[in-house]
Design a protein around this nucleic acid. Sequence first.
DNA 1: TTGAAAGCGCTAACAG
DNA 2: CTGTTAGCGCTTTCAA
Lengths: 336, 336
Amino acid sequence: MKTTIYDIAKAAGVSIATVSKVINGTGRISTETRERVNEIMQELDYQPSVVASALTGKSTFTIGLLIPDLANPLYAEIARSVEDRGRELGFNLVMCSTDNNPRREGDYITFLKQKRVDGIIISTGVSNEIGLKNLAKQKIPVALVTRDIPSLGADSVKIDDFLGGYQAASHLIGLGHRHIAVITEDLNLNSSKERVRGYRYALEEAGIDGDKQFCVESVSSVEEGKRHALEMLRSEDSPTAIFASNDLLAIGAVQAAKELRLTIPWDLSVIGFDNTLLAGIVDPPLTTVAQPIAQMGRQVMDLIIQEVRGQKQTKQRIVLMPELIVRQSTTFPRKV
Amino acid sequence: MKTTIYDIAKAAGVSIATVSKVINGTGRISTETRERVNEIMQELDYQPSVVASALTGKSTFTIGLLIPDLANPLYAEIARSVEDRGRELGFNLVMCSTDNNPRREGDYITFLKQKRVDGIIISTGVSNEIGLKNLAKQKIPVALVTRDIPSLGADSVKIDDFLGGYQAASHLIGLGHRHIAVITEDLNLNSSKERVRGYRYALEEAGIDGDKQFCVESVSSVEEGKRHALEMLRSEDSPTAIFASNDLLAIGAVQAAKELRLTIPWDLSVIGFDNTLLAGIVDPPLTTVAQPIAQMGRQVMDLIIQEVRGQKQTKQRIVLMPELIVRQSTTFPRKV
DNA sequence: TTGAAAGCGCTAACAG
DNA sequence: CTGTTAGCGCTTTCAA
C-alpha cells in the first residue's frame, strides 16, 4: 500500500491534522513536532496525494495546453517554454495536439475538465468557440497564446501580426521587389489574416497594386508550400519574391525554387515567419519575422497562474513586437 | 458550484449509486433510468470528476513522459506519437523536459508521483537510476523508449542501435570511404555507445583500423556539432566522411563543411541518425538512419497501458530495426 | 499547539 | 433493478 498521511501520523505519534499542517506550512506547530514529522516523511518517502488534496478544493496543479501539433517546431518550442515556466511555478502541463480538428479539440477539453485542470492555455487554430465560451462560463481560466479571440475576453499573449506582415513586405519592397507573392496559412486564423493585411498595407504604401499579386491559402506544411510555390513560379508573371506566413511554407518555397533550378536569393527572395529552429537550418538560412517564442510561453503561463491564484482582477491582452531577422534568403531582385 | 453526482441523482430522482453505475456501465440498470440519467447529465453538462474517482482507487488516466527536450524535433515527434496513442486509449500525457539534468528528472518524478499518474514513460538521457528503481519498487509502471536500462527490467521499445551504426558505416564504406570520423552524443548513453560500436564493427569487417579514426563526443546540438566538425575538417588528415550519431550533429557537420567551402557530398559525405523532420530540410537532404518514431511511440504507450490495466504478466523488450535512408549528403569520396 | 470530525465527489460492496 | 453506506487521502473548522 502507498503510505498515507495516516501512516505518517501514526509513526510520528500525532494526528493527521498536524501532519497536514506541517506539509502545508499552515497553523502553528512546534518546531519539535514539525521536525519529527518531516523526518518521518523523509524516511517513509511519503508523497502527499494531490489527488486527495484536489478533492478538498485545492488546485490540481496542472494546466492543459492545446496546440495544433506538437511535431511542428513552432508549437514544440512554445510548449517547451510554457512547460519550463510551469515547472518553476509548480505546475505540470498536459499536452493536447488537436490538428486544428474541432472534434479532437472538444474531446481534449472534456478530458481536461474531467481532470479538473486548473486552467487551459490555447494556441490551437480554429477553435470551436462555443467550447471555449463554455469554459469561461464554468470559470475555468483560459489564456491564449499566439492568437486572440476578441469576443472571448480572455487573457492573451501574441505578437502584432499586422506589424510582422508589414515588416516582411517592407523589407522586400525596400530591396526593390515589386512583384511579391504570398503563401498564407488558413485565413480563418486571425493571425494569418493580420499578417496578410500588414503585407498589403506595405504594398499600398509603396504604391503597388496588391490585388495583382499572387496570394494563395495553403495547408501549413512544407509539401503544400512547395506545391503552391511551384505553381506560382511556373506561371507567366512569376514573382521575384515570396512572403510565406510561416517558416514551414517558406521552406516549401525554397525547395520549389531549387527544383526549378532557381538560386535563392538571386532568382527569388523568400521570407518566412516565426523564426523557428528550421529557419537557421535551411539553405540558405531564412530571412524571417521572429516571434519571441520563449517570452510568449513564459508570459501566458504567468497570466494563467495569476488567474488560477485569483490574483487578477482584470484580463489582459499582451502584444509583443515581432522582429525582422535578415538572413540570406532575401536580396534585391535580379529581374525587373 | 460544479455540478456533482448528487445533482444528477437528485434531478433524476435516483441515488448516486445508480448514477455512478450508468456512468461506468457497471451493474444492471433499466434502460429507462439509464436514459433518463444520461439525458440529465447532458443537460447539466456534467463531467464526472476523475479526481474523485481516482481517489477511490481507479486510474488517473494520465501518463508522464520524460524526455530530454521537447524543442528537439526527435523528442517532439516521439511525444506526438505517444500522445496520439494515449488519446485513443483515453489517457493524457504530462510532459517533462529534463535536459538530462538528474535533479530536474528527480523533481519531475516527484511531481508525477504526487499526481498519482498511472505510469511513466522514459526517454530521457542519463537517468538517475536510483529514482527509477524506486518507481519500480513502488509498483509504478515504467516503460522506456529510445533507450534501455538492462538492470531495470522494465518494458522498453527501441531500435537496434548497433545495427544502425553498422548500417551507416557500411554505407559509407561501400561508397569507398576509408577515413570516416564520428561525432557522437554522450557516450554514457547506451544508444550512443551501441551506434559507435556498430560503426566500429563495420570498419573492422572492412579491415579498416578504427582506432585511427577521429571520434569525438559532443553535446547534442547543431552548434557543437559544427564546432567539432570544423576542428576535424581543419586537421591534417581530415576525413572524407562523417558519421554523426544524430541529425542535429550531422547538420552541424554540414554547416561546418559549408563554412569551409567544401561541397557536400563531393568533398565530404555526412550521414546522420534519427531521420527527423530536419533531415529532409537541410541542404543537401541528409542521408540518415531512420528510427520508426511513430511506431515506437505507439508501442510504448501500448505497453505501459497494458501494464496499467494489469493485463501483463511479463515485461518485454521490443527491438525494432533501423532503416538507412539514402538522400544526397553521401557519395563516393573524391580524394583518396 | 494539537486533535476530532465533517466533508470533498465518487466507487463498491451489501441489502433490499 | 436500486439505494445505503463505508471508505479513498487530505483539508479545515472548531474545541480542547
